[in-house]
Amino acid sequence: MNLYENIIKNNNHTETPSPYVPVMGTVERVTRVTEHERLFVIAPSNKELLNYCPGQFYMVGLPGYGEAPISITSGPGQEKEFEFCIRAVGNVTNALHRLRKGDTVFIRGPFGTGFNLEEMKGKDILFVAGGIGIVPMRSLIKAVLNDTKSYGRLSLIYGSRNPDDILYKEEFEEWKAKGLDMRLTVDKPHPTWKGNVGVVTTLIPKIEVDPARTIGVIIGPPVMYKFVILSFRDKKITDDKIFVSLERRMKCGVGKCGHCQINSSYVCQEGPVYRLKDLHSLPEAI
């Protein structure tokens, strides 16, 4: 539970008078990852922003364009810079895609709950990511793979639309070498694709699961959750051992503006990472 205490401490920015004023960040590197996504390495002017947990997010913006909520994708413990993988889909994210090395961005955060790594220790973890759900998942995977001794079996099921959309391909060998059992699937294969075809739930029955010692983590597009949850239930993983990260439109990041609300819960503060059991009282969630 120490992790949550840290988050709460992080959120009390007493030294920052206004929660709406961003910190400036310098773009150090931009890498084109796929047709739609770019990876940005950013150095914030205030190093306190680097004190984040996997699962948290930042409001990343550009002067004159506004902000968008973006999950952290680098592993924790960074000292100089952090990474965001951004899909060009809206006004702000398309503008961000035009940035080059040396440009300035506005950043506020980190916001929200992170994954509770302490609770995952000693357990098998089954990560299920769909689409750009792999972006926040990578931060968690990196944290876990840095300390594999502390965890049990680690498995990742990652589904993409087609082989070109798969993110972080170049890191997969390293992840496997560190002990991650990786299973990929695509909806629309190319003629050269030799892997699985179909939605992520087609792979879940193939994973051996000991429900007493398994934690499930789901991050993906909204439509994916309920199907993966059903598959997890087939595997007898109980809802108190399943964690999900939810996506919502966000504006303030500090639990005031109302945009991200799921029933009584402010996703920007009480989420985006939820224990599935806690969502039983929030019917709007999934």
Binding site: Y20, V21, G66, C257
Partner: peptide, 21 residues
Amino acid sequence: HCFDITDEGTAFEGERRKNWD
């Protein structure tokens, strides 16, 4: 009390505003 946060002006000069939503 719901509100929006938007940037107004240009990419060179402007202001960030809280507006009712």
